[in-house]
Design a binder for these strands. Structure first.
Lengths: 344, 344
DNA sequence: GGAAAAACGTGTACCGGTCTACGGCGTATC
DNA sequence: GATACGCCGTAGACCGGTACACGTTTTTCC
């Protein structure tokens, strides 16, 4: 028996609505876009036709001429809890507008990120939010010149895009002062070396530099010990093992991120060292997991929801025509939990 | 001084390429799509022109007539570790094709999920992957009739879409047999009541039913204790508190998900009970965190990467024209860690 | 060697919207 | 009463691709 192809009902178009309402396509378009020059009667009439037919404008067609009503979000990877917070804020902010946020994974390589970014551009998004992008500054500015762009989590400001950052200097100082006040002197740090050596103002770099500065300010220049790995759990694990293998074992480790701190905890556990009795551990980001009683990590809280909401606002403003750059900084706070204590 | 509007360079179009190569638009289009009827010379020539101009086809324009080369993924929320695994598999599978995955958050409400799904449809995606969607079956089938669709994490099969599931019966049995073999009799369960009461074949329901069945099979019908909350950390916390407050405290808790299990651990910690000495805890999903030494959760491993890869494959097949439904089931395995032990 | 078939390139309608230009009509202005 | 103007609706070009129909050239085959 021949397979009957399922009849794919043709989608309702603006012409269908126009015909059904007995008006022109242009009139329907005006109503949809809330354009000038529409009578109340027309609005009602078209509105009813739209409802009756269940019409929804097709984004692709709109994109070709006008806007796609789409905000593209580029992130390395989903599953990073802090990113989820950002999205919560962004979606919340966009909920009142006609815009929709779509996300795309850029991965951790230049190449894959480039591909993802291109994909967003090819899809004619109206604005782009880049979360901690790897892309070099020149290319970043080139994109930003053509599309409203907000960059989150990088410190290199530019006249062509908006910037949202947590004040990593302040946050790192909070952690370091906390550890030093507790009495620690041999404090290690785990940082993340981006592929682009040039990016002196990227977030991991700032945290690392602040760490070193505070150490020096307290006359602990000789105790500086940095492991360069990555901000992932694996990175934290490897970094901790490296730090532990050095001559004088640190009594505290400031991991550049909570993810990394989780790896540090794992490494310490494996080495039979207890936290915080043998080694204190602090992270950064206040991931939801940091709060879990089995982890109880001292960390820095940066309000991701606020950052996401602000990102949405800035993008909408840019889409509306703003060209002057905005630099928004969130002040972080220290959250002390059981992973830090005075050294024994 | 008047602000000079940044000149937005017009994007390179197919006509530009055609002119530059001295051929027709149609020829360029054929080359791009690898269509029939193109000579090697033509391919070279056009290829060179494309490279020289840095041309990239615009997805919106393609979508209008042909395909958008976009796969839409609908998920409740990013930040759920298991979803990240699925995406890894999906992206990996799509990497070789011309398709790109975009994600959209549906939230936990019918209404917000509907809006997100509409947004995908409006954007003319070529295929949709729905991860544990809330949407009712009728609507689901309606969407699937018009767009290639793969549903992951729900057990209600249909002739119009493909299904990818972990075999939740087998997984739940593994957990229960493990606990019973250890000697537990008072085993509690935490489940998730979806909004749609009708969905008898949804995943939480299956895990819960299997729990009850195994209990009965071992003559433990009287010990059945189920807390109905949700599969989130909060849900687990609340559920555990409820179970602990009952007359006979369970010696083991089978949480329907790792997320919930984390909440259970938190509640036990708060109650001053130790794991696994006082209470054994098991989860489901083998989230990355379950492996962390500070958590060390006994759980069920279902290979999210494999599931994601399969989702990609099935979608591409459907886009190519397959209409017969596929039902793919992943066999889970038990991962025993330190959160379970014989009752004292 | 000639007819048929295959290979290749082009012209152009079309997808579903947006937006500019314009025309008709009612009202205010002088 | 003629002119000007604001308001409202429409016609139709246009966005950047795809795909079909068709003409021309080359190859195949008897």
């Amino acid at each position: 028996m021949p397979m009957v192809a399922p009849e794919r009902r043709r989608r309702v178009t603006i012409s269908d609505v126009a015909k059904h309402a007995g008006v022109s396509k242009a009139a329907v378009s005006k109503v949809i876009r809330n354009d000038y020059g529409v009578s109340d009667a027309m609005r009602d009439r078209v509105g009813r036709a739209i409802d009756e037919l269940g019409y929804r404008p097709q984004a692709a067609a709109r994109a070709l001429r006008g806007r796609a009503f789409t905000i593209g979000v580029l992130m390395r990877h989903i599953g990073i809890p802090f990113y989820a917070e950002i999205m919560t804020g962004l979606v919340d902010q966009l909920a009142e507008s006609d815009y929709q946020a779509i996300m795309i994974q850029g991965g951790t390589l230049d190449k894959t990120e480039k591909r993802a970014l291109d994909a967003l551009i090819d899809r004619q998004v109206d604005g782009i939010l880049m979360i901690a992008p790897l892309v070099g500054r020149t290319q970043l500015e080139q994109v930003a010149r053509e599309f409203p762009t907000v960059v989150l989590g990088r410190h290199d400001s530019s006249p062509v895009y908006d910037l949202i950052v947590d004040d990593d200097r302040v946050g790192s100082e909070l952690v370091m002062e906390h550890l030093i006040t507790l009495g620690h002197r041999r404090i290690g740090h785990i940082t993340f070396q981006q592929e682009h050596g040039r990016a002196a103002d990227q977030m991991p770099r700032i945290r690392a530099e602040t760490y070193e500065r505070v150490m020096r300010d307290h006359g602990l220049a000789d105790e500086i010990a940095v492991a360069v790995t990555s901000y992932s759990e694996e990175g934290g694990y490897d970094g901790a093992r490296e730090l532990l293998s050095r001559d004088s074992r640190p009594t505290a480790i400031f991991a550049g991120s909570d993810e990394a701190a989780l790896g540090v905890l794992a490494a310490l556990h494996e080495a039979g060292l207890s936290v915080p009795d043998d080694v204190s551990v602090a992270g950064y980001d206040n991931t939801r997991l940091a709060a879990h009683p089995n982890i109880a990590l001292t960390t820095v809280n940066q309000d991701g929801v606020v950052m996401g909401r602000m990102a949405g606002r800035l993008l909408l403003e840019r889409i509306e025509g703003r060209t002057s750059p905005v630099h928004f900084s969130v002040i972080p706070s220290l959250v002390v939990r059981r992973s830090t204590a005075a050294p024994r």
